[in-house]
């Protein structure tokens, strides 16, 4: 018997594709965000509002992953996204770089400012698949419980921003804003956080400002 040291990552193929995506989008200064959350936290609502409110100012395109149906993509088309590329994963629990590569064939990076990739609603599997994004943004809603970051540390550790959604329901939930931020920072000391309500519009301005700042940095090729 001969024992050979290999040390090859099982994610290597995905990571290589992701690197190609990242480089291609960086050449055109496109800010690329991978939006992750559990199902029902309001990813599509956040994107819908964002597209509706910022379309006159920034050129936004979306890639939307859904296990079944194109309902989310339909909502974003109606909101006026420059381009909506749906990916129906057919049961697969996450998007991977191969799917995004295929979706990007129909997008022209030169005509874009921001690419928003809506991942499949799942706080486990999507966290370790690099899609070539600049950053992951994790969305959590106040109905989910403020201990989510501790229960799904991988996702919160790999995310740069936590958007806390549905703040209009705070009075009806045992959700402590301070607790969720503290828990997220135990997992990831660098994570930023924002509180919004897609329903009432509260806090969305700070999300838009964050997007503008990140896009400007990307355009100037400054580190995030």
């Amino acid at each position: 018997m001969t024992k050979v040291t290999v040390n090859k990552s099982a994610r290597q193929e995905n990571d290589e594709l992701a690197a190609v995506i990242r480089q291609r989008l960086a050449e055109h200064g496109v800010l690329t965000l991978n939006l992750v959350s559990s199902p029902g936290s309001g990813k599509t609502s956040l994107l819908e509002r964002t597209v509706r409110d910022l379309s006159g100012e920034l050129r936004l395109a979306t890639i939307v992953g859904d296990v079944q149906t194109e309902r989310d993509a339909e909502r974003l088309r109606e909101a006026g996204a420059l381009l909506v590329q749906p990916i129906t994963t057919g049961g697969l629990c996450h998007l991977d770089a191969r799917m995004v590569t295929a979706a990007l064939e129909r997008l022209d990076p030169e005509s874009l400012d921001i690419l928003l990739i809506e991942n499949v609603g799942n706080l486990v599997c999507p966290s370790s698949y690099d899609l070539g994004e600049d950053m992951k943004v994790v969305i959590i809603s106040v109905t989910e419980g403020d201990d989510k970051p501790l229960k799904y540390p991988g996702m919160f550790r790999r995310s740069s921003l936590m958007v806390i959604n549905k703040t209009d329901l705070l009075d009806h939930c045992d959700f402590e804003m301070d607790a969720v931020v503290t828990n997220a920072r135990k997992v990831n000391g660098n994570i930023e956080s924002l509180a919004v309500s897609c329903r009432s519009g509260e806090g969305l301005d700070s999300w838009y400002d964050w997007l503008r700042t990140q896009h400007e940095r990307k355009r100037r090729k400054e580190p995030a």
Binding site: N7, A10, P153, G154, K186, V187, G189, N190
Partner: peptide
Amino acid sequence: SDFTCSGCRSTDVEMISGDELEVAT
């Protein structure tokens, strides 16, 4: 799930190992 430094409680920490999935040998 508490990644803060167990010595000084700093959150300025980096992961050395624990997220790999590799064919080792």
